[in-house]
């Protein structure tokens, strides 16, 4: 389509990111159905919430027997980083209107990272990378959620297919690249231990939410 090689590279990168993220989508769809959500509900979560970490968090709190409130609280805390992404990208979409609303919906880890990577190439390249990645991942994520949900719906014992272990493995894969320094590693270990310590004393779901205190304690000192 585009004869401009820089633009072609943006599109190529966006496509490869979208395909990779699709794999998470299959895992989400399958895990969501295994957690007790219907195929329709799983697809609506991917269409409307469209932020993988939060979606996984919500369904796994429900799977562990937690309340809707605890599930939404865990999802919200994982989605807070999208607010920071919006703050970074706001100068690209300063005009009010449906375009900014659509931009907000596809503001996620991948679209933000690809847009910011184009910063030296100027605003136009950033906007192109943002839309190609955001919309590409949107399509891939939703199509694959449906596939995963249908596949899991066809099975009926999640443990027999290892789906129960697929969810923590997905969280581990999301967590691993964030453990770049000592403070991050101690925070992750703290969250891990505190959740297990609180499990016997708090209702399901709340031990996860309570680990926000670890982030506050670890982030407080300079």
């Amino acid at each position: 389509m585009s004869r401009d090689p820089a633009r072609r590279k943006i599109i190529r990168d966006a496509c490869s990111v979208s395909i990779t993220v699709g794999a998470y989508g299959v895992a989400f769809g399958a895990a969501s159905v295994a957690a007790g959500f219907s195929v329709l509900q799983s697809c609506l979560l991917s269409l409307l919430a469209f932020t993988g970490g939060s979606q996984f968090a919500a369904i796994s709190v429900v799977a562990s027997g937690g309340t809707a409130g605890a599930a939404v609280a865990a999802a919200t805390m994982l989605g807070l980083r999208n607010t920071l992404y919006g703050v970074r990208l706001a100068p690209l979409f300063s005009r009010a209107g449906w375009r900014r609303v659509a931009a907000a919906q596809v503001t996620i880890d991948e679209s933000t990272a690809m847009a910011l990577a184009q910063e030296p190439q100027g605003q136009e390249a950033m906007v192109a990378a943002f839309w190609w990645t955001g919309l590409g991942v949107f399509v891939g994520w939703n199509a694959c959620t449906l596939l995963g949900a249908l596949a899991a719906h066809a099975l009926n014992n999640p443990a027999a297919f290892g789906l129960d272990a697929a969810v923590p493995a997905a969280f581990l894969a999301l967590l691993w690249p964030r453990l770049a320094n000592r403070r991050a590693q101690v925070t992750a270990a703290g969250g891990f231990s505190l959740a297990l310590l609180l499990t016997p004393v708090l209702p399901p779901g709340l031990p996860i939410v309570a680990t926000a205190t670890v982030a506050i304690a670890m982030g407080w000192p300079p």
Partner: peptide
């Protein structure tokens, strides 16, 4: 704190899951 929030929660989600 906002940077560490998902790290603490993902650690907890691995443990609980």
């Amino acid at each position: 704190i906002l940077h560490l929030l998902p790290i603490a929660l993902l650690g907890a989600l691995v443990a609980v899951g």
